[in-house]
């Protein structure tokens, strides 16, 4: 890097090699300093995650017992359990997964395979990206008005499920669109070349190739729905429930709701119960995410 040798035959030089060399050391120091600064900033983000996990594990592990999973909510911290919330979250998933994936994949197929470039389809595309930016609490207001009141579903699993489905719909659409777009054009052409219709091509060639990507994206979106609290609060999902739902029209509670309730209570013991609840919630999410990663790794790079 250093310019030391004088070039022969050059009468006037605009660059003084000595000063360049001198300045070079300073520039290198700046480079090193900032490099460490950037690295430390990155570490801060990781550190926060570390502290967060440590805090929650150290506070909550003690409360994680078999009884914690078998008990319903209680005013006494030692007797408080997560059974209703855990089962409720599973019920919620049972509604959100099929509804959001049906709508999301359908929309993605439409946009990628059928939609021509025109105003209506541009509007749909623009609308999806805007919808992704709407705060979840506003989706709660939508759910409250349309599903809870107008359609009279009350604070049931169905009302919450529909609301959550709409909330994560943009994420699933975008993930499915990307997966469908990643299917090479030439296998589509191969199918058309055999005399296959468009729908045959989509069902037999495009979707089978895109399904791993779609599943990965959908599971990540679903895990967002598992952790969302605000829409459930607005819909009016209760916390103290002493029975398990038997159908989608039953009322229920969910993990984040239960955690929210415990976190708000002033007794110190309830903070530990909340931590235990968070551990369950995070384990739930971790499980879903590992499935997503597994699918992604198993089916990666096939072309």
């Amino acid at each position: 890097m250093r310019i030391t040798e004088q070039q022969p035959g050059v009468s006037k030089r605009y660059i003084d090699p000595d000063s360049v060399t001198k300045r070079m050391d300073g520039r290198k120091v700046i480079n090193t300093v900032f490099r460490s600064l950037f690295f430390m900033a990155t570490l801060v983000a990781l550190l926060v995650l570390g502290i967060l996990f440590y805090r929650i594990l150290s506070q909550g592990l003690g409360f994680l017992s078999a009884e914690f999973f078998q008990n319903f909510a209680s005013r006494i911290p030692e007797k408080a359990g997560i059974k209703a919330a855990l089962v409720g979250s599973l019920w919620l998933m049972a509604v959100v997964a099929p509804v959001s994936m049906f709508l999301g994949i359908g929309t993605a197929i439409y946009l990628e395979e059928y939609a021509k470039k025109n105003r209506i389809n541009d509007l749909i595309r623009m609308n999806i990206s805007n919808l992704a930016g709407v705060p979840s609490v506003v989706f709660g207001l939508l759910g409250l008005t349309i599903f809870v009141r107008a359609l009279a579903l009350g604070n049931s699993i169905l009302a919450a499920g529909f609301t959550m489905s709409l909330l994560i719909l943009p994420v699933i659409i975008v993930a499915a669109q990307e997966a469908i777009r990643a299917v090479p054009q030439d296998v589509r052409e191969a199918s058309y070349g055999m005399g296959a219709t468009k729908w045959q091509t989509i069902v037999r060639v495009v979707l089978p190739s895109a399904i791993p990507g779609i599943l990965t994206g959908s599971i990540l979106a679903l895990s967002r729905a598992v952790g969302e609290t605000a829409p459930l609060i607005v819909i009016g999902v209760p916390v103290i429930i002493h029975f398990l739902p038997t159908g989608v029209t039953d009322t229920f509670t969910a993990l984040p709701m239960q955690i929210y309730d415990w976190a708000k209570r002033p007794q110190a013991d309830f903070q530990q119960v909340a931590s235990a609840g968070i551990i369950v919630l995070m384990a739930f999410l971790l499980f879903m995410n590992s499935i997503a990663v597994l699918i992604r790794n198993k089916f990666q790079k096939r072309y």
Binding site: A45, L46, L52, V226, G227, I259, Y260, I278, L285, N289
Partner: peptide, 8 residues
Amino acid sequence: LAGVPTIV
């Protein structure tokens, strides 16, 4: 970090 629920 992005996937941690906001309640947490």
